[in-house]
Amino acid sequence: MSKVLLGVMCACLPLFAAAADSIPGTPAPKVDQPEAYQPWKAVAYAIQEPLGGLKGNAANGRKIAIDRSKGNCLACHVMPIQEEEFHGELGPALGKIGKKYNEGKLRMRIVNIQEVLADSLMPPFYMKPDKLNRVVEKYQGRTVLTAQEVEDVVAYLTTLK
């Protein structure tokens, strides 16, 4: 009988070991949660209000435009960013885009250009995640850019005149 009890206890050992890993009262390991989606309103193909009322930082926007895992604008657009080689040519050059479009129109095009040009291959950088199809797990529930990053890119583009 005691042998059986010992057997049961041994079988339970791994369980105890696993339980010891998470001591009650300690915070769970921090998981990078996606931020809440900021609603926006388009009027005549423009979003006048900054996402979440945030203020953009143009210098940071320029960095995001270069970053291949963020904006990666250079993949398809020629931009006044001389230190980077090989600017793509799929989309229009953006050297004077701040003259062509005002801030609201630029924001609309970064948030989701497909609302303006249905067949565009430009990624929607701030499309509502639940409207996307077959997103790989790592990026599920997330936008390509955060609201702040969208505002940073918009701030940068408005300087291109």
Partner: peptide, 18 residues
């Protein structure tokens, strides 16, 4: 499909050579 919302045709039918 995907977070970038792309389809094969968007690049390979509409923009080859670019």
């Amino acid at each position: 499909s995907g977070q970038l919302n792309m389809a094969c045709s968007l690049c390979h039918d509409n923009h080859p050579g670019e």
